[in-house]
Design a binder for these strands. Structure first.
Lengths: 215, 215
DNA sequence: AGCGTAATTCAACGTTTGTTGAAAGGCAAC
DNA sequence: GTTGCCTTTCAACAAACGTTGAATTACGCT
């Protein structure tokens, strides 16, 4: 018997707790005892279900990575299916890249909220940003870059990569939900207002891609 | 005698070491003993010059904040001085916001490199992103937003703030220098190539501001 | 009912953490 | 040259860390 139903439940509870705490305080700030207390389980259980603290962290990242990739692939499928002969617009492609994630956040699933905040931290960390992100998301990103290359045949390779870099940064800060824009705008804008972002981010970024491609 | 020359030197050495280590590994991952070893001083000296580890961290952030603000104010002064009657272009204003920092990095001053990487981490951290960034950079940011408001009189307030949010994210990821784009582009682009970025970021971001203002 | 394995608890280990008090060294002023 | 203050060292504290092994409970199978 490899795994009972009950144990799977607690394993998920551990992952949930770790996800929330890692997202808020970062890997090193969080203690295994904190995680297990929030999960309502004994400390040693963390080491029964996972090999180490680091292993638990990786498991947290892995758990939603596939789903995350799948919904973005599906969104790009849908866009490309809508354009059999002509190419999709840049804004449509960017929207397929960002909106599935923003929609998930808009639906107020707190777990996804934590997960994205965690990814945001990992993405901006010199320690993990280069390797981990590459490992999990490279195939997807390359497919989007292919689509963008077709939509912008005059763009140089370097311009495409740098444009994606700026997109990645803008999206990442959005996921962090630091509340900075709340302060700055005196409440006019809210970090958690994903509808406001999906109404603006694709257009904003598409304009950037197109301007660099033209120069 | 409030402070000797020698003690000021070691205080700076402590700050340098802390800056480099905090930037690479984050606040919690770095130990005070690590910092003092790299600074070549006794552990207890950290608590003679600073009140606590957290206080040392704040001192690291403070040290270069004024200089950072000053050079960006000067850059905007210069741009506005060049346009007595007509308004500067959006790209010029964004350039004044980003290029002073990118130039500093391009000159290969390793200390500034560490500092910006640290700021990038702080900016994306839910714990500090909202409060600390507001405290240090709000007046400067508001001045830039004023200039952008004049250059884009048709833009709504929300569009301006969100556009700034995207700019902030793109710039922040640049500072992190995670090497992600090196992997993704197979070496075509390098995270450390600030010249490539200052040639693209202002135009890219300006296009976004302008598109949102038009819609 | 009872065996076997999976899941969970308990108590502890060695290490490292941030931090501190007291003592030693260095240097200017008188 | 001794007084006085600033700086630096040394040694240690209690607390918390990640991790583990052995003991205990829960549960599916025959």
């Amino acid at each position: 018997m490899p795994q009972s139903v009950k144990s799977k439940e607690t394993k998920q509870r551990i992952l949930d707790a770790a996800e929330a705490l890692f997202a808020r305080d970062g890997f090193a700030s969080v203690t295994v005892r904190q995680i297990m207390k929030q999960a309502g389980a004994d400390v040693a259980l963390a080491y029964y279900h996972f090999e180490s603290k680091r292993d638990l962290f990786d498991a947290v990242l892995m758990r939603r990575a596939e789903t995350m990739n799948a919904i973005r692939h599906a969104a790009l499928d849908e866009v490309e299916g809508r354009h059999k002969d002509d190419a999709p617009t840049v804004e449509e492609i960017i929207g397929a890249f960002t909106n599935p994630l923003l929609d998930l956040l808009a639906e107020d699933h707190e777990q996804w909220r934590h997960y994205f905040a965690l990814v945001a931290q990992v993405n901006n960390s010199p320690e993990w940003g280069g390797e981990l992100m590459t490992k999990y998301f490279d195939p997807l990103v390359r497919r989007f870059l292919d689509a963008l290359r077709r939509a912008l045949p005059n763009s140089s390779e370097a311009d495409l990569f740098w444009s994606y870099h700026f997109l990645s940064g803008a999206l990442t800060l959005t996921f962090a939900e630091t509340g900075r824009i709340d302060n700055l705008s005196n409440g006019t804008c809210r970090s958690s207002d994903m509808a406001a972002i999906s109404a603006r981010l694709p257009a904003f970024i598409a304009a950037g891609f197109e301007r660099l491609a033209k120069a």
